[in-house]
Amino acid sequence: MKTIKQTFVIALFGLLLMSNSSIAQDEKSYLITVTKMHWNMNLDDFSMDEWKKGEKEYLDKVVKKNEFIVGQIILTHYFTADNTELLLVTTYDNWEAIEKAGKRSDELEKLAWPDEKVAKAYFDKKSNYYAGNHSDEIYATMKGAKMNGSNFDKEVLYYIRVSHFANQKDGSNKEYTELNKQYFDAVINKNEFVKAYYPNVHAWGSDNTQFTEVFVVDDLASIEKSFDKNSSLFKAAWNTEAKQKEFGKKMGKYFTGVHRDYIYKLVPELSK
């Protein structure tokens, strides 16, 4: 995949996964839990339609009725190192809401499946699609998100770039915020191939330096088109080589320069 370079890597900017348009556009900070699950590869009678049917039932009877869940999506592997993985991405107002949402889901499950035998049959079938192992991370949203305005009703792609903040002393939150806003206003917000953009930072998990950016695009070709557009918009906003180098030097000091890329596909019918 094409890599865009100026004097720094442009894609160091921006993420994570605010799950959908139900999140207010007031730049309020939210918490996002990301649970990485895996398909049960030993399931002989696997049916994508049956899997969606089971998850849709839970979405309608529990998730959509849970007032402590702001939004939720499910993403499946498209281009990642593990073809068995799925991401369950859920958005909450705060830490307290995460705990309250768990208790509320338990209540709603009992209301939806009051018969114990029926409940056991449903949840056994639902859980049989997944392997027993999973991992969890929690992220905090950042300012500078580009909202799509409505839920996506098709299988759009989520291009995710994970970068790392550098341990540096020559900088400030004020400078970084200003630089980030300049880039967002001049480039990401004007890029028609980027349908939505969500920046996030680590809140709880294995790596506190992690900075995640999510770019929502229509298809695979749109990823490279968005790179080209980013490059042209950047050169238009910083219209000399000297200005480009100066901006790149200022922003580049906040990151290690190392990043990882992932592409997932949205399951649109399983979104709140």
Results as ranks from 00 to 15, higher is better:
P268H: 04
S22D: 13
K53A: 15
D26N: 08
G71Y: 09
E213Y: 13
I32Q: 12
G252K: 03
W39C: 07
F193I: 02
D60K: 15
H38L: 05
N148F: 14
A101G: 14
K174N: 04
V201Y: 01
W238V: 06
N189Q: 12
K272Q: 10
V217I: 04
N83W: 13
H134D: 10
F227V: 06
L157I: 02
L15H: 14
Q168F: 02
M251G: 00
N20F: 11
A97P: 03
G257M: 09
Y197A: 09
Y264K: 10
S226H: 05
W238E: 00
A121R: 09
K253F: 11
L157N: 08
V187F: 04
V194W: 04
E85M: 09
L111N: 00
G248N: 01
E224D: 12
M48L: 15
N189F: 10
D136I: 07
E246Y: 02
L16Y: 14
K61H: 04
S19I: 05
L157D: 07
Y58T: 04
E55F: 11
Q244I: 01
T35R: 15
A11K: 13
S47C: 01
D115V: 04
Y198N: 11
L111S: 14
I69F: 10
M1I: 11
W113I: 07
T76A: 03
T141V: 06
G248W: 00
N42Y: 14
N128V: 01
E85H: 00
A11M: 13
F46E: 12
Y254H: 02
K190H: 10
